[in-house]
Amino acid sequence: MGSITRLHERPRPAPLRIASDEEVLTAAGEVIALGTAAPAAVLVEALVRSGLLAMSIPSDFDGADVSNGLIAQVVSQIAQVQPAAAHALVHHFRALELVRNAGSEEQRRSIYLHVESGERLSCGGVGEHVASQRYFTDGIGFRLSGALEAASLGEPDWFAVLANSEAKVLSLLLVQRGSTRTELVPGSQPARYRLDEAHVPADAVLPLHKDALPLSQSLGTILLASAILGEKRQRLAADLALWRGGVRSGERPWDERIGKLQVDTEILAALIDRAAVALDLAQVNPTPAGVSDAFRSATALEFAALPAGDRARDGDRLLAQLGRTLLTD
């Protein structure tokens, strides 16, 4: 099977090659230093140049393969100054986790090389972990049918889409930017793009391996919670600054409000660390027990990260999902 190729190439800044945890934190610090007012285009260029987009590539493919805890730390820190950039990174790394557990070694190596050159991925189907799309034989490739949305900081180079074949084989399809019509969803943050039917070359269809979905879902949950944690920490810092500056108005006593934010951040930070370690172990040795532990930890984290307004809608579903992982072990 041939390597994944682009329809066109365009100049881009040469990314740094990250090889250690210290280099990851240094690169993240440079992105964070751009501050809250940096335009999206500047952030995209900085992220591409930083080398952070490739930090989760496995060591078997000459990547840094940093821990999930460190990726979570980077996402959380960036979320404190640029929430849209942090949420776009969540989708990029969730897509890369699907790549880790899909296709042939040659296919994986090919897309990793694209990412190392600074290209960005986004998961099609914002917030979804299941396939709602179908793909069909179309000449020497395949045709992806059905519209969906994908979130990204600027239009991504690749849309990573879960879809079922005519024979109900679940695969990861990598849809190249420019190969299908995309439309920006007005007012979305991070930017969301709608895409419709697309032709996908055969070498850009990667059948999923066992455990690909729970591992990718677990990472996505960890990183989304990390982005939420960063935003909560920023809110806590802002409230403390207002209090110290003499502002006293509010819907509830300030000590209670600030105390709740502190408890929320402590709980999220602890659960993120627990889930990240469990996922590290499952990636290295994907035993059924290890994958189940990672997924269970991520599900508990997802429940804890729910905004209060979403508990009534999603809380029971997550609790039932968590209970099933315990009852079926």
Rank of each mutant, 00 (worst) to 15 (best):
A312R: 08
G51L: 02
V75W: 04
S297N: 14
D264T: 12
E128M: 13
D203M: 15
P253V: 13
A102T: 00
T180F: 00
E302F: 15
V284H: 03
D157M: 09
D157L: 04
A300V: 13
P11A: 06
R313D: 12
F303Q: 10
V90F: 05
T325N: 12
V74W: 06
D293I: 05
F142V: 13
T5F: 01
G29A: 13
S59E: 10
R49H: 14
Q77K: 11
L236D: 00
T221R: 15
L322I: 09
Q107P: 02
D196K: 07
A275R: 05
L236I: 05
L121N: 02
A308N: 09
A304E: 10
I78N: 00
V263A: 15
T265P: 00
I228E: 02
P307V: 11
G323K: 14
A79D: 01
V81S: 06
R317L: 15
R100I: 03
Q176S: 12
A312K: 06
A95T: 02
N101E: 14
L153S: 03
L271S: 09
S297T: 11
Q107S: 08
A79L: 03
T36N: 07
V291E: 01
F295H: 15
E9G: 15
V31M: 04
P15Y: 01
A294W: 06
M1Q: 11
L219W: 02
G127D: 08
R177V: 02
A198L: 05
G127L: 08
L52C: 09
A151H: 07
D329W: 10
A320N: 04
E119K: 08
T325M: 08
G63M: 04
